[in-house]
Structures are given as structure tokens and as C-alpha cells.
Simulated assay, not measured.
Amino acid sequence: MASMHQHSYDVEVTWTGNTGEGTSGYRGYRRHHIVRTDGCPDLLGSADPTFHGDRDRWNPEQLLLSALSQCHLLSYLHVCVTQGVVVTSYVDTRPARWPRTATAEAGSPTCCSGRA
């Protein structure tokens, strides 16, 4: 019987945006957070600026897009090496567009029900 291997990944996300009043109001807290995993540098995160985030920090949309781009890169390199194709350079510039809804334009996230 073949042995099954499991890949496990653990991350910790810590919200650091409490300005003293918690989430008492939509504009009264920062979206800052830290993404951590053992053995890697911390990622400073926030929301997209549309949702009152900090443009100097990674937002979830950028992280999702970069994860897809990384998976594509690594899969491509694997296929190339198994097929004898020599790759000496690779750059992937990935644009992504999410539609803005009336709710998003008003400053409320469209992905959440408002429950924690």
C-alpha cells in the first residue's frame, strides 16, 4: 500500500490595529495585522486602501494574487525540468481586477456578514 504524505501549513494572523476603542466604529480602528509562520520573516498586512487600509502593507488581494503567481511559476519550472526545457529567467506580472459594488464604494466590505 502506498504511503500518503501530508503537507501541513500553519500561519498566525495577529490584529495590531486597535487604537484604544476596539471595533466600536468602522473608521475607529486600523486594519493593521501581522502574518507569521515559523522560520519566515513577518508580513505586515492591512486592508486595501479602499477599505481604510495602509497601502504600504500587503493586503489580502495582493497575497492571493502572489500565491497564484508563485504556484504557476513553481509548476512551470517543474514541468520544464521534467521535459528537458532549460529556463534561465522568469518574470510574471499579474494584474487582477475586482469589481467595485455600491456597497464597496460606500466603504463596507462585500465579503463579510458583519459577524466575527
Results as ranks from 00 to 15, higher is better:
12 E>V: 14
69 S>N: 12
29 Y>Q: 08
8 S>Q: 13
101 T>C: 02
99 P>M: 04
16 T>E: 02
11 V>I: 03
87 V>M: 06
14 T>F: 01
32 H>T: 13
70 Q>G: 13
84 G>E: 03
58 W>M: 10
49 P>M: 05
11 V>Q: 02
59 N>R: 00
104 A>F: 00
69 S>L: 07
106 A>Q: 13
63 L>K: 04
56 D>H: 15
36 R>T: 06
78 H>E: 02
36 R>Q: 10
50 T>G: 14
20 G>I: 01
23 T>G: 10
48 D>I: 08
9 Y>A: 00
66 S>P: 06
3 S>Q: 14
116 A>L: 02
15 W>M: 05
86 V>Q: 15
27 R>V: 11
38 D>S: 09
72 H>A: 14
19 T>M: 15
29 Y>N: 07
1 M>E: 07
94 R>D: 08
78 H>A: 07
79 V>E: 03
90 Y>N: 14
9 Y>L: 03
44 L>R: 01
62 Q>L: 12
62 Q>S: 07
49 P>F: 07
90 Y>A: 07
13 V>T: 15
50 T>Y: 11
42 D>L: 03
3 S>W: 10
46 S>V: 01
85 V>T: 09
73 L>G: 06
44 L>P: 01
68 L>I: 06
38 D>V: 08
12 E>C: 15
26 Y>F: 10
106 A>P: 03
25 G>Q: 10
40 C>P: 04
102 A>T: 04
110 T>W: 00
85 V>N: 05
33 H>K: 01
33 H>S: 12
71 C>N: 09
36 R>G: 05
94 R>S: 15
97 R>M: 10
54 D>C: 05
26 Y>R: 11
90 Y>H: 15
102 A>Y: 03
46 S>D: 14
19 T>V: 15
72 H>E: 13
90 Y>D: 10
35 V>Q: 01
93 T>H: 14
24 S>V: 05
88 T>Y: 02
53 G>H: 08
46 S>R: 05
102 A>E: 09
45 G>D: 05
116 A>I: 01
52 H>F: 15
56 D>P: 02
17 G>Y: 09
19 T>L: 15
84 G>I: 07
65 L>M: 09
42 D>N: 01
57 R>Y: 03
114 G>H: 00
61 E>R: 06
115 R>A: 08
89 S>Y: 10
1 M>Q: 08
57 R>L: 02
41 P>F: 08
21 E>F: 06
85 V>L: 11
4 M>S: 07
86 V>T: 15
2 A>Q: 07
116 A>Y: 00
80 C>Q: 03
68 L>E: 05
54 D>Q: 08
13 V>Y: 03
17 G>I: 12
100 R>N: 03
68 L>P: 03
92 D>T: 14
34 I>N: 00
37 T>L: 02
34 I>G: 01
44 L>C: 04
54 D>R: 07
25 G>W: 09
69 S>R: 10
46 S>Q: 05
85 V>W: 01
23 T>R: 13
79 V>S: 03
59 N>G: 04
81 V>S: 13
103 T>S: 04
74 L>R: 07
114 G>A: 01
15 W>L: 05
30 R>K: 12
55 R>G: 08
17 G>T: 11
16 T>C: 06
60 P>M: 12
20 G>T: 01
73 L>D: 11
70 Q>W: 06
